[in-house]
């Protein structure tokens, strides 16, 4: 068997291309050991006791959170779209860029999360529909007011709106954290934790910017 698993290499050129395929050893021979709490013995699991998937599943609350957050994020991106043509401030433009990049990345991630778990993916425009609104979101009237505002007035309305919008995301995280069985799955745990930390920091920053505008 010596060197049968070797991949040949062409050192003369810059490239090798190879695929090593192993079928894997028969799993039955390998012990699966379930530890207990400290001080308790570990136990070798029988074939039938072995978990098919060693991971906690996502809950309906997790799914609802992700579905709701897609529309929530989508409105933030719409607000930033307005900002691009209406603000004169460089720091506002940078804030907008940051929000756009992070929220678009996160929308992609949330859609993929739902897709990979066989859950339905809402349209990014679902928040325009009756009942599609989430905590902190601007009403159609408020969005219209923002759309027609200019200069410092726009900056003020944008910051006030975005602070409330981000605050809504924090409310959504709190609701999730109060739902039994939620956040047991690794990705939703990390994502919700990240949204909480990230938006808290952004709110602090926007509050500082808002003070600067009110002067």
């Amino acid at each position: 068997m010596k060197r049968t698993n070797r991949v040949n290499v062409c050192l003369a050129t810059t490239v090798i291309a190879a695929v090593v395929v192993f079928s894997g050893q028969a799993s039955a021979q390998v012990p699966v050991v379930q530890p207990g709490a400290p001080g308790k013995p570990s136990r070798e699991l029988s074939e039938s006791e072995r978990p098919k998937a060693v991971a906690s599943k996502h809950s309906p609350a997790d799914t609802k959170f992700m579905q709701g957050m897609i529309g929530h994020h989508a409105q933030a991106v719409e607000m930033v779209d307005l900002l691009k043509t209406r603000t004169k401030r460089e720091d506002m433009r940078m804030l907008g860029m940051r929000i756009e990049v992070s929220q678009n990345d996160e929308i992609k991630m949330m859609r993929l999360w739902l897709q990979n778990r066989g859950e339905s993916i809402p349209s990014e425009h679902a928040h325009h529909l009756p009942g599609g609104t989430m905590p902190g979101m601007l009403t159609p009237e408020e969005m219209e007011k923002l759309r027609v505002a200019k200069g410092a007035e726009f900056d003020r309305l944008f910051l006030q709106g975005m602070i409330r919008h981000h605050g809504g995301a924090l409310t959504m995280v709190q609701e999730l954290m109060s739902s039994p069985g939620a956040m047991q799955e690794a990705e939703i745990h990390d994502f919700a934790t990240h949204v909480d930390a990230d938006q808290r920091m952004e709110i602090l920053r926007m509050n500082t910017m808002l003070k600067g505008i009110k002067k």
């Binding site: 070797r6 040949n8 062409c10 190879a18 395929v21 192993f22 079928s23």
Partner: peptide, 14 residues
């Protein structure tokens, strides 16, 4: 334990 390896060589021309 079943193993197999596949390799395809290199063409020196770059």
């Amino acid at each position: 334990m079943k193993k197999q390896s596949i390799w395809i060589g290199c063409v020196v021309a770059g």
